[in-house]
């Protein structure tokens, strides 16, 4: 009889665990601080553009080597601004950003930014775009050419090597840009909505490719997207941002085993909760809109952002 009870109990706990998993409970937890120095340290970073728009306010993010971090947030919440600051294309007006303990001053060979727009050289063919970048890194012509062809194939663009960028579709151009970035093999990859223009099928191929490369070389990736499910499929961590002023709402660890299925119940449920959180923040932001505008006019202190919503 005791064995029966024990059996029932085991069944019950398994059922509870399944139910909890389906409901996404315990799979998305506030970030646990890691030991050791971070690879990327964003500390109290604020940025105000010349036109007084506060694009970022008191942003604190630590990224450790080998982490895959996704930034999600509504349009205009400062995601691109933050990536530009990480890449060294923009000096934030407050706070500091260090990589391996060194302050970021301009672009460096350790980092590579995949732009939100397909930033290709329009006068070069697909292959030449890759070869040109690879040659600048000191590869011989033959090596650069072989590597370029390999990565063009990896993004499923075989047969388009000699095509000019303007003869490709938007999604194809983004894949060329991705191929160029991956071929250069940087330690830190900064990616700005690289797959927004792709169909579901191609996007899932690109997810696989990116995860493959990431798992193989343990790159540090900061990946911006406004697609919460994409963030949950790819990221070890999801950082939820809000707009006006751009700030971090939540920093969450994603405890889902890989490979992940975007249609998995738990993942869908988790994405629903993050989207609810974003909606709440937007509603609160609309109510506080007046205050934010006042803060943008005057010398707003870069104080801690008001914490919105409970941890998920």
């Amino acid at each position: 009889m005791w064995r029966q009870v024990g059996g029932r109990f085991a069944l019950l706990t398994r059922a509870v665990r399944r139910a909890r998993r389906r409901a996404g409970i315990g799979l998305l937890t506030p970030r646990v601080k890691r030991a050791g120095p971070p690879k990327i340290d964003v500390s109290r970073v604020g940025h105000r553009f010349g036109n007084q728009v506060v694009a970022l306010r008191d942003v604190n993010i630590e990224v450790h080597a080998g982490e895959f971090v996704c930034l999600v947030g509504p349009s205009g919440c400062g995601k691109t601004t933050l990536l530009y600051a990480l890449a060294g294309h923009l000096e934030p007006s407050g706070g500091r950003i260090t990589i391996d303990g060194l302050r970021v001053k301009g672009p460096g060979p350790d980092r590579l930014l995949v732009f939100q727009e397909p930033a290709l050289f329009p006068w070069l063919t697909v292959r030449q775009n890759l070869v040109f970048a690879l040659r600048a890194r000191g590869l011989s012509r033959a090596d650069a050419d072989a590597r370029a062809r390999e990565y063009v194939g990896r993004v499923h663009l075989d047969g388009f090597e000699e095509t000019l960028p303007h003869q490709l579709s938007g999604g194809m151009r983004m894949r060329v840009q991705l191929a160029r970035a991956l071929a250069l093999d940087p330690a830190v990859l900064l990616m700005d909505e690289p797959f927004a223009a792709l169909d579901a099928q191609t996007r899932s191929h690109m997810h696989q490719l990116l995860q493959q490369v990431w798992l193989r070389d343990r790159k540090t990736v900061v990946f911006v997207t406004h697609d919460v499910r994409e963030a949950l499929v790819l990221g070890d961590r999801v950082i939820v941002m809000a707009a006006r002023p751009g700030r971090v709402l939540q920093d969450l660890d994603v405890r889902l085993e890989r490979p992940r299925d975007p249609d998995d119940d738990a993942l869908v449920e988790m994405s629903r909760r993050i989207r609810d959180e974003l909606r709440r923040a937007e509603a609160a932001g609309a109510a506080e809109g007046r205050d934010a505008r006042i803060a943008a006019d005057g010398a707003a202190p870069l104080g801690p952002a008001p914490h919105l919503g409970a941890p998920l």
């Binding site: 890449a87 060294g88 294309h89 301009g106 672009p107 460096g108 060979p109 980092r111 590579l112 930014l113 732009f115 727009e117 930033a119 290709l120 050289f121 040109f132 970048a133 600048a136 890194r137 160029r180 250069l184």
Partner: peptide
């Protein structure tokens, strides 16, 4: 400017 930034991030100098 995007082309100049692309050159910057690719380390072309």
């Amino acid at each position: 400017p995007l082309i100049l930034r692309a050159a910057g991030t690719l380390g072309i100098r």
